[in-house]
Computed example of a mutant assay.
Amino acid sequence: MRVLIIEDEIPAQRLLVDLLNSMKRDIEIAGCLGSVRESVKWFKQNSHPEIVLLDIQLSDGVSFDIMKEVNIESLIIFVTAYDEYAIRAFKVNSLDYLLKPVEVHELEEAFQKYDNYGLKFIQTKNLDTNYEELISVIKNSLPGYRKRFLIRSNESWFQVPVEEIAYFYSLQKITFAVTFKKREYPVDFSLENLKEQLDPDVFFKINRQFIVNLNAISRVHSWFQGKLVLEINPSPMEKPVVGKDKVAAFKRWMDR
């Protein structure tokens, strides 16, 4: 059985790969894709697998953008963090939907549905779905900002809520999240990408190395050349300096 994973978050991709590899089935992972654009290209150039594990929100749109461009000849198992999408997902010929973080027994149950109903389901697929309407509704209801991060530790996975993170920093092209409890985890996003995902009322990108949580700042000091230096808890190894070009915006942010 060939399975394609379409998921834009690298940790979630890895988790699905690990779960598939742990199942007692003959599974070939056809690929791991992260965007609408590359998924459309893949489906046009490759034979379609039996099953697609499909996230709803992707890096450049929503998964229904793919279906608008190509007729996917696979059965779809939606994998999403957003329960409100579930009913709509079933209306577009999905075999099942799973809420993140996915457990192996849930994935096995979804595959069991394929064993029981797969061929019959394919023969009765509805090709009249209004994808334009679905795309519009879902894009308008997407949650505004990230609420948690899925973190890998050795062979296990766990979630870290955003409100527990004091700051993010970048070192040698790797981004780390540091919690108020002084725990540090690598995350698979650049600071620029994180800036778009985080609530701007709570987080501020002070320079190329740091994004700080407002609640982590205990004091702000003037520094040379019109810059500012922050006291944040827990203390980072590098000084968290607010660049001169960001000082005015930073002060407005602090004074809201």
Rank of each mutant, 00 (worst) to 15 (best):
P49E: 06
D201P: 00
S136Y: 08
K91D: 14
V178F: 07
L95I: 08
A166F: 08
I66G: 04
V102K: 09
S156F: 11
S136H: 13
A89I: 03
E9T: 10
C32R: 15
F43A: 07
I174C: 01
E103F: 07
Y131F: 15
K181A: 13
F111I: 01
D115V: 10
V137M: 11
M254H: 02
D128K: 14
H105D: 14
P236W: 12
E184L: 08
P234K: 12
K182C: 06
T129E: 08
I232C: 08
I6G: 02
S47F: 13
H221Q: 10
N116C: 00
L119K: 14
C32H: 10
K205E: 13
R256T: 11
K91E: 15
Q112A: 12
F168V: 08
S156L: 07
N213W: 01
L33G: 07
S63C: 13
P240N: 08
I5Q: 07
S94N: 11
K24S: 14
K113G: 07
P11S: 12
R219S: 04
F250K: 13
S190W: 03
I76P: 05
W223I: 00
E109Y: 01
S222F: 02
E103G: 06
R14D: 09
N140K: 12
N116L: 11
I232N: 11
P11K: 13
I122G: 00
F78R: 03
L191T: 13
R14N: 11
I56N: 11
A177C: 07
D115L: 09
T129P: 01
